[in-house]
Computed example of a mutant assay.
Amino acid sequence: MKFSGQILKMTTQNAKPIQYYLNLSADLINMNQLFGKRLKLKHIGFECVNCGGDEKIYRMGFCKRCFFESPYASETIIRPELSTAHLGVGERDLEVEQSIQLAPHIVYLAYTGDVKVGVTRRTQIPTRWIDQGATFALPIAETDNRYEAGMIEVAMKEHLADKTNWRKMLEDDFEDDLDLADFREKVKEFFPENFKNFYSREHEMMRLDYPYEAPEKIVSVNLDKSPEFEGILCGIKGQYLSFEGGNFINVRAHEGYVVELEI
């Protein structure tokens, strides 16, 4: 069976275990059904997720021009504290930025090999946590817009990591008695004074169940360096496909790549 098309990040369904679907242009492929099967991938081109051009992908699925021009790749995507839509000030496209930034946001704690802090729109829970490969996650604040959430995250980053160590996440090592509620109580004192009213104890900790077992070694496979790859699919965690022998492909890192997939 053969497919071809542009890679987008996998669509997920929070179940036990989590169900994964590979987006390959017009095809949506249930990856859980392919465990134990040999997959062959061949990188044959690029397709920018914004303009559709056959340009080398620069970052986040965008060609270089779109990365620096599209509102969907603006700096506030990475650094929410820079958001200005709540002031009526646009960075690249105010209407688009308002649709993203002027929505309820969650500041959360997640365990991805270490406890980290993060920000996402409320509508992206639990998708955001699944994409990061979080074993546990717990909201600690709910804000009215992206700027407010970003300011809380900036304060939290002085005490907690804000990025996922992908190797530690894939090592899948954690304490059974880990309780993020304890961390939530401890970090309350680090909230900026003007943002303490957003602190929340209302949410319960969520545990996520991945179709995955950690291998003895972890090797990253990049389609730029290895444009043809084949292996037996063993599991998935976050946006990483796990293959026999400890080889991993980060699907999110290959957004905008055009591939041929043979099963």
Score class of each variant (00 low, 15 high):
residue 150 G to N: 13
residue 150 G to Y: 12
residue 151 M to I: 15
residue 151 M to G: 01
residue 151 M to R: 15
residue 152 I to D: 07
residue 154 V to H: 09
residue 154 V to S: 13
residue 154 V to N: 11
residue 156 M to W: 01
residue 156 M to P: 04
residue 157 K to W: 00
residue 158 E to M: 10
residue 158 E to H: 13
residue 159 H to I: 13
residue 160 L to N: 11
residue 161 A to W: 05
residue 162 D to L: 05
residue 163 K to C: 08
residue 165 N to I: 11
residue 166 W to G: 00
residue 168 K to V: 06
residue 172 D to W: 13
residue 172 D to P: 08
residue 173 D to Q: 14
residue 173 D to F: 11
residue 174 F to H: 11
residue 175 E to L: 12
residue 175 E to D: 15
residue 175 E to Q: 09
residue 175 E to R: 14
residue 178 L to F: 06
residue 178 L to S: 03
residue 178 L to V: 07
residue 178 L to G: 05
residue 181 A to Y: 01
residue 182 D to F: 08
residue 182 D to I: 11
residue 183 F to Y: 14
residue 184 R to I: 06
residue 184 R to Y: 05
residue 184 R to W: 05
residue 190 F to G: 00
residue 190 F to V: 07
residue 193 E to R: 07
residue 194 N to P: 07
residue 195 F to I: 03
residue 196 K to Q: 12
residue 197 N to K: 15
residue 197 N to F: 10
residue 197 N to H: 14
residue 197 N to Q: 15
residue 198 F to N: 03
residue 201 R to P: 06
residue 202 E to P: 01
residue 202 E to K: 10
residue 203 H to D: 06
residue 203 H to A: 09
residue 205 M to Y: 01
residue 206 M to I: 13
residue 207 R to W: 07
residue 209 D to G: 06
residue 209 D to K: 09
residue 209 D to Q: 05
residue 210 Y to G: 10
residue 211 P to G: 06
residue 212 Y to W: 01
residue 213 E to T: 15
residue 213 E to Y: 01
residue 214 A to E: 00
residue 215 P to W: 08
residue 216 E to N: 15
residue 216 E to D: 15
residue 216 E to Y: 13
residue 217 K to W: 05
residue 217 K to P: 03
residue 218 I to Y: 11
residue 218 I to Q: 00
residue 218 I to M: 01
residue 219 V to R: 05
residue 220 S to K: 14
residue 221 V to M: 04
residue 221 V to A: 05
residue 224 D to R: 08
residue 225 K to M: 10
residue 228 E to W: 02
residue 230 E to M: 07
residue 232 I to T: 15
residue 233 L to V: 05
residue 234 C to W: 04
residue 235 G to T: 06
residue 239 Q to F: 04
residue 239 Q to W: 02
residue 240 Y to P: 08
residue 240 Y to T: 00
residue 240 Y to I: 00
residue 241 L to R: 13
residue 245 G to K: 14
residue 247 N to S: 13
residue 249 I to D: 00
residue 250 N to F: 07
residue 250 N to E: 00
residue 251 V to C: 05
residue 251 V to L: 11
residue 253 A to D: 11
residue 253 A to I: 04
residue 253 A to H: 04
residue 254 H to F: 03
residue 255 E to F: 02
residue 255 E to D: 03
residue 256 G to A: 00
residue 258 V to S: 02
residue 258 V to P: 00
residue 258 V to T: 02
